[in-house]
């Protein structure tokens, strides 16, 4: 995100501003209307203001908690091939979920 992270974090009033919200929208692949950029800025600032309290917690030596199930619970299941028929049926079903498809392929408009 460019700006000085340490400087930002020292402040509990981090303000992203419209330029940074627009950049986040680009990174998030979200097309935002002007009024959304205007309203999201102060709302996200307010949430980040609350989140800033985490900076005061001593976390040295603490392992991050990423999931209540720290490893794959039952290990990996056996990698057994399925029948061709099941695969064909699966491909048909997955294809049918798409907004546009042709003979099992996802279709998008020409973009190049």
């Amino acid at each position: 995100m460019g700006a000085s992270v340490n400087q930002d974090l020292k402040s509990t009033t981090l303000q992203l501003g419209t330029e940074r919200i627009s950049k986040l929208a680009l990174m998030s692949r979200l097309k935002l209307e002007d009024h959304e950029i205007e309203s999201f800025g102060p709302q996200i600032d307010s949430i980040l203001g609350h989140v800033a309290e985490l900076q005061s917690v001593v976390v040295e030596g603490v392992e991050p908690f990423l999931s209540p199930v720290s490893k794959m619970a039952e290990g990996t299941r056996e990698d057994r091939p399925r029948s061709n028929e099941a695969l064909r049926e699966g491909a048909r079903k997955v294809g049918a979920c798409a907004p546009q498809q042709l003979e099992g392929a996802f279709v998008v408009p020409p973009v190049l």
Partner: peptide, 25 residues
Amino acid sequence: LLGTFSLSSGYSDEYFLRAAKVRAL
């Protein structure tokens, strides 16, 4: 947007990773 910010380069350690550590506590 908020999630993208928390995971973005330069911020993920102090937001996502720190939050995951406080979660452990």
